[in-house]
């Protein structure tokens, strides 16, 4: 068997693959948020950024292929591991008192698929525009403002990004463990890193629909 297949076949290997793809997806989420926050600098700035991206199709499509592959592998490994884990205790406990497993960790298996469905909707809404009431591919700023003026849509984005925050809070800490990156010198920093980035990304992304709803961005 090929070495990478042998590695992936193990549970530890699958987790390493999830951590590695998770890092790529985290990187994208950071860049995506920084790009989006340009909405606060006005329509010209945001639309100019969008035009800049469209002028580099090789870069954009390269990123889409890598990210799409990462998403698929991340999900595949998650499904395989989850099915295994669900099968590992056929008779459940009558009483269960969690000691350390926090809300974020216990809901990874639910925040993940909800975020995946949201990403599908988000692409139809603000990338392809098919789920948007009045989509103009040239005017990103206007698409965002009109899109988020619908309260249910804005709330969907808020909830999805809060879940993304929870997902990142566990994932960004967990990936250090999985990749074997453990040392007393930086073990405390791992938790801080996860908490800060989860909070910053959730807050940054949630701020946009909230700003539109409250009329700060129009």
């Amino acid at each position: 068997m090929h070495w990478i297949a042998a590695f992936y076949r193990s549970t530890v290997g699958k987790k390493v693959v999830m951590a590695a793809t998770g890092i790529l997806l985290f990187g994208f989420v950071v860049v995506h948020m920084l790009g989006n926050l340009q909405i606060y600098q006005g329509p010209e700035k945001l639309n100019h950024y969008a035009a800049l991206l469209r002028s580099a199709p090789a870069l954009v499509w390269g990123a889409r292929i890598v990210l799409g592959f990462s998403v698929l592998v991340h999900i595949l490994a998650a499904v395989q591991l989850t099915l295994r884990n669900w099968g590992s205790r056929p008779v459940k406990y009558q009483v269960r008192a969690y000691q350390e497993a926090d809300y974020a960790a216990r809901t990874m298996v639910w925040s993940g698929p909800i975020i995946a469905v949201f990403v599908g909707y988000h692409l139809l809404h603000l990338t392809l525009g098919t789920a948007h009431p009045d989509f103009d591919p040239e005017d990103v700023y206007r698409n965002v403002v009109i899109g988020f003026q619908a309260v249910p849509v804005a709330l969907t984005y808020v909830v999805a990004n809060l879940l993304l925050g929870f997902h990142l809070y566990h994932g960004l800490w967990s990936l250090f463990q999985t990749l074997g990156l453990n040392h007393p010198a930086y073990n405390t920093a791992r938790r801080v890193f996860a908490a800060v980035f989860a909070a910053v990304i959730a807050a940054g992304n949630v701020s946009i629909p909230v700003a539109v709803l409250t009329g700060l961005v129009k």
Binding site: K15, N85, G87, Y98, E100, R106, Q177, N182
Partner: peptide, 27 residues
Amino acid sequence: GSCTNYRECEAVCPKRISVNFIARLNR
């Protein structure tokens, strides 16, 4: 099953084995 870094194991271990050893195992 597989490890998802819940750290429930460390919390109940009568010998307080640290999950840091799991990182070592992964390495």
